[in-house]
């Protein structure tokens, strides 16, 4: 198994997103590419990533392998790469991850026993969909966070608003149809869902500017799925379970 990225931004974004949920991550490499799927310890959020072989400068994988890494250790190595530096990873016979950063930095990192079990994806319909720039979404989360720990998303016909309510007050942000920043709002059914900013904020910050656009899909009292559109990466899906009244 050997994979070489062109540039380091995509790998940094992926590792940063994963680091918001788990301390140890198991990746699966197949001939098709590299995948990761995992939940945070309390099972409130799930990240599902698929990174196709075509996105790499060089990619070889003769047989399927799983490899586990401590995310903070891996992250430290990858941060040593400049934006344009390629990162090459392979696995040694001594069960070490070989990480070549740029032209001349060759790291070896101990792999960990992978305890990964196959996590399914939640089976849910998505009644509503909002596409907007990730920078706009990041600002909205900041606007809500000053009064609340939770974001409520509401769609009605083809309108949407984000809101938050806390002890000190509340906020409503109407999404006007701004062509530059709001790509699309659609709803098959009016939907309302409330989600924790404790999970949302870090992952949106982590993928940050690497994703131009994001798509939020949800239904009333169902998990939110955010798709980050990162040019070379097949899929970065972030699922977040709702808070519901009972």
């Amino acid at each position: 198994f050997e994979a070489k990225t062109s540039g380091s931004d995509d790998l940094k974004a992926i590792i940063s997103a994963i680091s918001t949920l788990v301390e140890e991550a198991t990746f699966v490499a197949t001939a098709e590419g590299i995948t990761f799927r995992g939940m945070d310890p309390s099972h409130v959020a799930l990240i599902d990533i698929s990174w196709p072989n075509s996105a790499f400068e060089k990619y070889e994988c003769d047989s399927d392998i799983k490899f586990g890494v401590r995310i903070d250790e891996f992250s430290k190595l990858i941060k040593r790469a400049d934006k344009k530096d390629s990162i090459e990873i392979s696995i040694s016979e001594q069960n070490m991850l070989l990480v070549t950063v740029g032209k001349n930095k060759k790291y070896k990192m101990r792999l960990i026993e992978s305890s990964a079990t196959d996590t399914p994806l939640p089976k849910i319909p998505y009644d509503s969909k909002i596409t907007l720039s990730s920078s706009r979404f990041d600002k909205i989360l900041g606007d809500v966070q000053v009064v609340s720990d939770y974001l409520t998303i509401h769609t009605s016909d083809s309108k949407a608003d984000f809101s938050g309510k806390g002890d000190s007050g509340e906020v409503v942000i109407d999404l006007e149809k701004d062509i530059d920043e709001i790509g699309e709002i659609s709803s098959k059914e009016d939907s309302i869902g409330t989600y924790s900013l404790e999970y949302l904020n870090p992952v949106v910050k982590a993928v940050g500017t690497t994703a131009g656009q994001i798509t939020c899909e949800f239904s009333s009292a169902k998990p939110l799925r955010i798709e980050f559109k990162v040019a070379n990466i097949g899929r970065i899906h972030f699922y977040l379970a709702p808070r519901v009244e009972s």
């Binding site: 099972h43 409130v44 998990p223 379970a241 709702p242 808070r243 009244e245």
Partner: peptide, 11 residues
């Protein structure tokens, strides 16, 4: 009462 659901509630 507001409750935080888990992803597993929707498998």
């Amino acid at each position: 009462l507001i409750r935080q659901k888990t992803i597993a509630d929707f498998f």
